[in-house]
Design a protein around this nucleic acid. Structure first.
Lengths: 242, 242
DNA sequence: CGGGGTTTTGACATGGGTCAAGGAACGTGG
DNA sequence: CCACGTTCCTTGACCCATGTCAAAACCCCG
């Protein structure tokens, strides 16, 4: 079975037109295939990187730790995400990347990225753009963590993941898989698992959303979006001149 | 008086060697000069951008707002920062940029950035790297906002700004100017101004640091750094192969 | 000398944390 | 098919960090 970067291409095309040459250049890189089991560490902080990884199936988490060892999840990666594209430039990451479920990965050597971005400078900007969307999501979460109440933070998480699934064309209007436990959700939303559990109960009791067995099911997406005060522009969901 | 991008060049050189041609290419772009008064909005969210701004003197703030209008400051810009370099790629920002003090700005048209990055692809990566440091700072603040106590958040802020001043060679070991009021600091650290005031008092009473009249003065930088659990690696302060 | 924007302080309210116990779900081996 | 351990989820009781509201003090600047 071979490497399949279709979801990634689809994510790029959702924003910018890709010429046939550009698409071929991306597909023509020397991609490799790797698999990780749930909870396996994919990248360690500080580790020197010579290739980057594109998630083709499964979910991954980027985590930072305080010196005492408590964890903050700074990003959730879904299929189609180029999970350590920033490693191409940074060479070492300040955070860890872990498989949240069984993951299938397409790898590409940095030398290949170098070759293609030197030849296709517009592709270079398109890749840069992807890392800037990550940064925009980080900024949004600074707002969420700094200013919103716990219940809204959880609602925001569910809304954001829905929107991101929709961008790559995965079915998500009714619900979607989110293979995390409540400890994980707590480490994303900056609260304790106990309190997260109470927030989930409140959202469930308000007939907005349920989360069970690693699946989100919407009861009232509009209502949830209102609870979160979710404004999806930061995801740059629409087309974009580059 | 002409445009002076020395601090920016110094910031780049702190991380990577710049060849003479690369430095000349940067200096040779069609830079313009602009000034902003304190509290003036420099970039509005959604506004279409055709040039980018490099802060040569003064301080600027990037702010996001909730629908009710409360503000979270997502980034502090100091002299030498290319404050909307990401606008070169994104074209419209999801946040506002405001002058925190009187600011002096060097502007450069996106067409110039395009020309130079197409010719000098390594410069392209160096600029990309700068935006990735921003993202790393965002991630660190997700950790800070999600996991740290209020007093440590304030301590972290003071430590981070010290480290960033040091990178561009501004004197900062004893203290440094930080032209904000307590409301601003509260909007950075995700708390109310009243509580921020109490944190400042605690840090002062613990003989760690004082903040008065827009100036930080250290009494015990090591102690403060311990209080913050400050680990500066996320700033990528050292040299970096690109 | 007056007046805006700040900073400081006090009294009180509350969201979310902490600790602890029990319960459901699930896999494994007997 | 059941017994058991393990992991995760749920709930209760209590507590503390931080928010809220309000008043007073400060302080620069005109």
């Amino acid at each position: 079975m071979s490497v399949n970067i279709d979801l990634f291409i689809r994510k790029l095309c959702a924003r910018s037109h890709l010429s046939r040459e550009e698409e071929n250049a991306l597909r023509g890189m020397r991609w490799g295939l790797r698999r990780f089991e749930r909870h396996q560490v994919m990248v360690r902080p500080g580790q020197e990187l010579t290739e980057s990884m594109l998630l083709t199936a499964g979910f991954a988490l980027r985590c930072k730790f305080t010196p005492e060892g408590t964890r903050q999840i700074t990003e959730i990666n879904i299929p189609g995400d180029f999970i350590d594209l920033h490693g191409f430039i940074l060479k070492r990451l300040d955070h860890e990347i872990t498989a949240a479920s069984r993951c299938e990965i397409a790898t590409v050597p940095h030398s290949e990225l170098m070759r293609v971005t030197e030849e296709f400078t517009r592709l270079n900007r398109i890749l840069w753009f992807q890392t800037l969307i990550d940064a925009a999501i980080h900024r949004e979460w600074m707002l969420v963590l700094g200013k919103k109440r716990s219940r809204s933070r959880v609602a925001q998480l569910f809304c954001e993941m829905q929107a991101r699934m929709a961008i790559i064309g995965l079915p998500s209007k009714e619900g979607y898989p989110l293979p995390f436990n409540q400890q994980d959700l707590a480490d994303i939303t900056g609260m304790t698992p106990v309190h997260l559990n109470r927030c989930l109960k409140e959202l469930r009791d308000a007939d907005l959303v349920t989360f069970r067995n690693g699946r989100v099911e919407f009861l009232d997406l509009n209502g949830l979006s209102r609870e979160a005060q979710f404004v999806p522009e930061y995801l740059h969901p629409g087309p974009h001149e580059i």
